[in-house]
Computed example of a mutant assay.
Amino acid sequence: MKARRSSPRASRCCARGGPAPDRNRLLRRSALRRGARQGLHAHFSARRRCIHEIIISCLTFVSAFGAALVGLVLRRRLPEHHFEDHPRDVGKLVMGLVATLAALVLGLLIASTKSFYDTQTAELQSLSVKIVGLDRVLGEYGTAAGPARAELRRVVEEGYRRLAGTPDAASIHLARGEAAPAIIAMRQLVRALPAETDAQRQLRGSAVQLAGEIVDTRLLMSEQVNASLNWPFVLVLVFWISVLFLGFGLYTPANATVVAALLMGAVSVASAMFLIDEMSRPYEGLIRVSAAPLQLALMQMGQ
Rank of each mutant, 00 (worst) to 15 (best):
R48V: 02
K114S: 13
F61D: 01
A102V: 07
K114Q: 13
C50F: 07
K114G: 02
L108F: 14
T121C: 08
A102W: 03
R48W: 06
E80M: 06
A122F: 06
H81Y: 13
A68F: 14
R75M: 07
L106S: 11
I51P: 03
Q125L: 05
A122Q: 11
T100P: 01
G66I: 02
H81N: 09
C58Y: 00
R47N: 03
K92R: 15
V105K: 07
A99F: 14
F65H: 06
S126E: 12
M95Y: 11
I54G: 01
V90L: 14
A64V: 08
L78Q: 05
L59G: 11
A102S: 13
A111K: 12
L97S: 10
G107A: 11
V73Q: 11
F116L: 09
G71Y: 10
E80C: 03
I55C: 02
E53C: 07
L74R: 08
S45E: 07
G107L: 14
R76H: 10
H52L: 01
M95E: 11
L127H: 11
A102E: 02
L104R: 00
V90E: 10
K92M: 14
A99E: 09
V105S: 01
G66V: 06
G71F: 12
S112G: 09
L78M: 13
S63R: 00
L124E: 05
R88L: 05
G66H: 01
P79V: 09
L108P: 00
L109C: 12
D85V: 11
H82D: 05
S63H: 01
P79I: 07
I55V: 04
K92T: 10
R75V: 10
V98Q: 09
R47A: 09
L74T: 07
R47Y: 06
R49Y: 12
K114T: 14
T121S: 14
L78P: 04
I56W: 02
G91A: 15
L59C: 08
L109D: 07
D89Y: 11
I56P: 01
A46E: 12
R77H: 05
L108Y: 13
G91W: 13
S115E: 09
T119I: 04
A46R: 05
A68K: 01
M95Q: 14
R48D: 00
V105D: 02
M95I: 08
G107F: 13
C58V: 02
R48E: 03
R48T: 01
V73K: 06
I55D: 00
T121G: 07
L69I: 09
T100L: 15
F65T: 00
F65N: 00
E53G: 13
